[in-house]
Design a protein around this nucleic acid. Structure first.
Lengths: 349, 349
DNA sequence: TTGAAAGCGCTACCAC
DNA sequence: GTGGTAGCGCTTTCAA
């Protein structure tokens, strides 16, 4: 292994000069710098990360925790994070949290062992709020994506979920629907609660009465979307449209509707939330609310990097991104919003 | 930050004793060990990873490169890797390769800077074979998943793709199909070539003539499955079944068939390959060939860890896993394998 | 069983 | 501009 000493000896200078030359610091004659850089290259020198970290106290690594890195939902966020990381010389250290317990263990180790300079936390559970608070207390620099904590010491980046729920529902209302159901996510998660709020807001504005039996709770996973839709299909009067709190559940809803022999969008319109890669491939392609995930990832990384490079700037940055409605083929105008008998017609087969 | 020295001072021993005590090495009186462990805990001591790495020359980190970590295909592999890593005290450092160029840069940095003890490479492109060879030359311990290199210095774990292609095709033949098309992957990738081999082998065995116009090349992505299927739908005589080299393309094929007004499986049976999470959710649920991905990830990590802990055991381990046919609803018996006129009927609408 | 000291590779300080 | 040197926190001889 080639070290800084080897180069120093080879060039005939001291190790300190080599260090400065290689790190582009002031105080090295241009000619010697070139000599050193050249020799380093020839000898195949590569700085040892551990040694450097030990003295600089910086790892140039950012820890990233999310529930499950292979969730397609995170794909865009990851790409945004990577873009900034590679741009600014940071390495990303990913860690799945799955259940909060695991999360604390793995992440804690990274922080405690000083393997990361800061953290990016994506969509934590409510339960982990205490954990996040402990990060604040320790002084670990971090950014939370998908949560909007009021705490002025936390940096948060999220999408306006109330607005998202609102535009999804508004779209259905604009299509003439009035019996609009909603399959929610886990309601003790802020995201789900906010989307429900948006749903209600749109209903209120349109003067449509909120009916509790048109709202069924799911847990953000396919299976619950499927079963929630089954429940809704048994509810009378039958809804003509449904806003589902995320695309995974919407896929399940689509399946349930198909199995009931009904057609989307003609019998029931469906709007999802997230715009997963697969959402344009369903049958029919899903109308949904897109979150600017790439941008969120990118901003989160930028915010953290900037915070890392300028600790004096402090924390408390809050960035709220607007969601965007993506209209595809799973929604259409309500054929018969005011003709009760039509409901019977819908149950063909 | 609490260091080993702080503990030493606190307990009244030397740093070396503390180190040995904390690392469970011989030569420390049990009572002092307990004292030390206890104090370390109380003081909130956590070993500094960089310092330790600097002297031990081990990072306890495994680098993992794959084309795109957010590809659902890798999900199972990642979980297998994680299981073993957490079991054996290793941290996983993920890195997307996307295009081979990026791969070399990021990974190279990890190795050069000695940030990882070894590497796990998932499904590299053919182009990167030279790169992998360079790893061998450098003496970097590594395991390749999804490739079966003959090189006796390489550890490889893969699934028997020839068999996979074979059982997929055989299943269709057993259903009575004889006009079986095949949408391939990128053919200069071993995986794709092998699946094609398996397809031909099954055909040969059944005495079905291979017809080149029933084979269309794709590149493993949705879009190419869609367009390849479009091509096949224009081919006469029309196929009654198609084996698609991976599920993503199969999703595209399903879409193309639906758009043509044909039904799966009644008009055309479809078999995929991979068994993605979404494959059971398509309409109809996709019959496919499953790879034991969790097991492959698990074995890869075990192999590498064992190699890291026992360098003397050497390299060259080859593990080939068998694939498994998962029969769902996208395949069925061929209604009319020998009635040409049926083909016309199929083109309703 | 314990302690002193060297040293991993690097940066940073201070003197020249 | 350059070099000597201390030291980051830890493990690991080697001697006591």
């Amino acid at each position: 292994m080639v070290t800084i000493k080897d180069i120093a000896r080879h060039v005939g200078v001291s190790p300190s000069v080599v260090s400065r030359a290689l790190n582009n610091k002031y105080g090295v004659k241009e000619s010697t710098r070139q000599m050193i850089v050249q020799t380093a290259k020839e000898m195949g020198y590569h700085p040892n990360a551990a040694a450097r970290t030990l003295v600089t106290r910086r790892t140039m690594t950012i820890g990233v925790i999310m529930a499950d890195i292979s969730e397609p939902f995170y794909s865009g966020i990851i790409k945004g994070l990577e873009f900034v990381a590679s741009e600014s010389g940071y390495t990303l250290l990913f860690s799945n949290s799955y259940e909060s317990l695991e999360q604390s263990r793995v992440v804690q180790r990274m922080i405690d062992a000083q393997r990361v300079d800061g953290m990016i936390i994506v969509g934590s559970n409510v339960k982990e709020k205490a954990y996040i608070s402990s990060l604040v207390d320790k002084g670990t620099p971090f950014v939370v994506i998908e949560r909007s904590y009021r705490d002025p010491r936390m940096n948060c980046i999220w999408v306006d979920n109330v607005m998202g729920g609102y535009i999804a529902t508004k779209h259905l209302i604009d299509c003439g629907h009035t019996r609009i159901a909603h399959i929610t996510g886990t309601l003790d998660v802020e995201v789900a609660a906010d989307r429900l709020k948006g749903y209600r807001k749109a209903l209120d504005e349109a003067g449509i009465a909120f009916s509790p039996n048109l709202v069924v709770q799911g847990t953000f996973v396919w299976q619950t979307g499927y079963s929630a839709m089954k429940t809704l299909l048994e509810t009378r009067p039958l809804c003509t449209a449904v806003f589902v709190a995320n695309d995974s559940m919407a896929f399940g809803a689509l399946q349930a509707i198909a199995e009931a022999g009904l057609s989307v969008p003609h019998d029931i319109s469906v709007v999802g939330f997230d715009d997963l890669q697969f959402s344009s491939l369903t049958n029919p392609p899903l109308t949904t609310v897109r979150q600017p995930r790439y941008e969120m990832g990118r901003d989160a990384a930028r915010l953290l990097v900037s915070r890392l490079n300028h600790p004096e700037q402090g924390d408390g940055t809050k960035i709220c991104h607007p969601p965007e409605l993506i209209v595809r083929k799973s929604t259409t105008v309500c054929r018969d919003s005011d003709q009760p008998e039509a409901i019977v017609t819908q149950q063909r087969q």
